[in-house]
Design a protein around this nucleic acid. Structure first.
Lengths: 160, 160
DNA sequence: TAAAAAAATGAATATATTTGCAAAATAAAT
DNA sequence: ATTTATTTTGCAAATATATTCATTTTTTTA
């Protein structure tokens, strides 16, 4: 799917460099062999939850909302990371294990972050299945999880 | 100063309700007896660091960056709150006391939030002087501090 | 307090973003 | 495989936002 590739490329570009207009983003994409019109970008940016915010020096830049929703409960976030037991990849999916009874809360939190990379999650009692969107690498999902729950990988490492 | 009043009103309106265009904000302000042109709003919004982000249901809304900078280090934030000892008001200023040696870090963090309400801070070893901008109430500064460091007032209450 | 400098503002305009609509592409159903 | 429904996209037009320039207001300096 052409759109998925474009959305991922947009996220990446915006995360890595300062983009201040859609026309500018259009050129960057063209440089990567992805082409579309500015109108499409406008729609895509909305879908991705990308906002336009002052860059602090008189201009504007596009910005992933990152944890605009998630950050509202940083305490909750802090409480969630410690319940994570393990993260393993399987069949192109990702499986997260928590201490018993905590999978549902954690999955809810992950869903709430509204990340494009994650198509959805299914939670049991102590296991969460994270389903990446088509075309999204597990590497990207790891990055994404670290954004949603900073320190999650460190936590897992320490458990071992 | 007319501008200060307007900036504060803008922050308040944006924090409390959903605004999707500058024209809309213009009307709300007019309702509060504050009038200016859209051009001025455009400049003010930039100065306040107000961004325009997707509202999740097809539209856009203006949004204070809140802790766009601060949230990037939620762990740090979590570590800071516990060092706060007390908050007292004096001479229209606000004095925050921390455990010894932590005033500077905390002040740096507060400054970093880039809140309009706070003109600046001065930190000693265990004391921070928070200087509100002219026309800003201490009540507003309290609200502001709670935004920068969620749980700070609860922390202080528990200390007593 | 008067003069000079800096900051803020409005009006008009330039620039940027969003949207309606029809066509094209993709996915689903028969 | 063909048809039908859904989604995506470009184009052109409509909206919305940012900026230029001249003027007014506020602040600073002498």
């Amino acid at each position: 799917m052409q759109k998925t590739k474009r959305l991922l490329a947009i996220e990446k570009i915006i995360a890595e460099e300062t983009i201040s207009t859609q026309e500018e983003l259009l050129k960057k994409l063209k440089g990567k062999g992805i082409s579309c019109t500015q109108a499409t970008l406008s729609r895509n940016l909305r879908q991705l939850g990308v906002g336009r915010i002052p860059d602090g020096s008189g201009g504007y830049k596009y910005s992933l909302q990152e944890n605009h929703r998630a950050s509202s409960s940083s305490t909750l976030k802090f409480n969630i990371v410690p319940v994570i037991q393990d993260i393993v990849e399987a069949k192109g999916l990702m499986v997260i294990r928590t201490i018993p009874g905590n999978a549902s809360n954690t999955a809810f939190f992950i869903d709430g972050a509204g990340r494009y990379e994650i198509a959805g999650t299914i939670a049991g009692d102590d296991t969460i299945l994270v389903i990446p969107r088509d075309g999204v690498t597990l590497q990207a999902v790891h990055t994404c999880l670290e954004i949603i729950l900073p320190g999650i990988h460190e936590q897992v490492k320490n458990r071992k």
